[in-house]
């Protein structure tokens, strides 16, 4: 590329340069917009349109308006899947995130040795693909020879973790804790390391003990991180699919392991009810949007300070 440096340079080059100046920014941002339009914009609009149609076979479709939405709200399996998903989400928020925070606090403590190794050890499960996690835990929950039942069987109960309705979602939640607690721990750890030491020193001067410092210094300082982790974990929980799908062999027994996304998948790919599946997708979108806004509001993220 030649850059004109002297007034005697040919005019043509200056003209080209000016043209490039105008075009270049658009070319730089074009890949994103192209990809967005092809892989996000078009499918989004297409799925919205699809949710207003019933599709049958590979070519036929008829307009049903909000018929799919009214069908969905009267569908007991959808509600059961929603309940299961909410169960998992609540389990995640109440079990996984406190564990993640606790691990972060421990690893942030000056009294713990081997921090680098422990960080890696706790973080490592997230590097395992969901499919393999499900396969591993299928063995862990094995009714006869599984790691967990090897302990429980001592008390005279051989639990069918993946075979009895009431144990399926707890089994999925525990697996989620194993896989994701270490990942969320990293966020909390980063947040903890960002808290100024002076705040703790000031609290100590005011006579605060460890617990009071945690409540009045650590937690308020971590608020943005907690908000982020809560929202991301909630969205991830609402999109739960691969883990229970493989762990429970498709959500059985009695749809005890069925989630919203699993029900979407079944309708779209197994039952070939694409319009209905698109409707589930949009309902899920609204649920995620509402829950995320409520969470952020409750955590005070929109508050002006």
């Amino acid at each position: 590329m030649k850059i004109p440096t002297h007034p005697n340079e040919p005019r043509r080059i200056i003209k080209n340069w000016n043209r490039q100046q105008k075009i270049a920014p658009y070319l730089f941002i074009a890949p994103f917009y192209l990809l967005f339009v092809v892989f996000m914009g078009y499918p989004l609009i297409s799925s919205l349109v699809m949710s207003l149609y019933e599709m049958r076979g590979f070519q036929s479709r008829i307009f049903v308006g909000f018929g799919n939405f009214t069908d969905l709200f009267g569908d007991p399996i959808f509600w059961k899947s929603l309940r299961n998903t909410a169960y998992f989400a609540i389990g995640t928020l109440t079990l996984q995130l406190p564990i993640a925070l606790l691990l972060a606090i421990l690893l942030n403590s000056k009294y713990v040795k081997g921090k680098n190794f422990l960080r890696l050890a706790f973080f490592a499960p997230v590097l395992v693909a969901g499919v393999f996690v499900a396969i591993i835990f299928n063995l862990v929950y094995d009714q006869r020879a599984g790691l967990i039942n090897q302990e429980f069987v001592l008390f005279g109960k051989e639990i069918g973790w993946l075979n009895e309705e009431n144990y399926v979602m707890p089994a999925v939640i525990l697996t989620g804790v194993w896989q994701w607690a270490g990942f969320n721990m990293i966020y909390f750890l980063a947040g903890l390391q960002g808290i100024r030491q002076e705040l703790y020193e000031a609290a100590a001067v005011d006579g605060a003990n460890w617990w009071q410092a945690f409540i009045h210094v650590t937690l308020p300082s971590l608020r943005p991180v907690i908000a982020f982790v809560f929202v991301v974990s909630m969205i991830g929980s609402l999109q739960l699919f691969d883990l229970p799908y493989i762990l429970t062999n498709g959500g059985e027994p009695a749809d005890a392991g069925s989630t919203i996304v699993m029900y979407l998948y079944k309708n779209g790919f197994q039952f070939m009810r694409l319009g209905y599946a698109a409707t589930i997708g949009w309902v899920l979108f609204f649920i995620i949007a509402v829950v995320s806004i409520v969470q952020l509001k409750l955590l005070g993220i929109f508050r002006e300070e």
């Binding site: 299928n138 063995l139 094995d142 009714q143 020879a145 599984g146 069918g160 993946l162 075979n163 429970t248």
Partner: peptide, 19 residues
């Protein structure tokens, strides 16, 4: 007895057979 694990081909079911 109900199948051990999630289907007849589950390792748990094979373990029960061996037991």
């Amino acid at each position: 007895t109900p199948v051990y694990g999630t289907w007849h081909g589950d390792p748990s079911n094979f373990a029960a057979m061996q037991d």
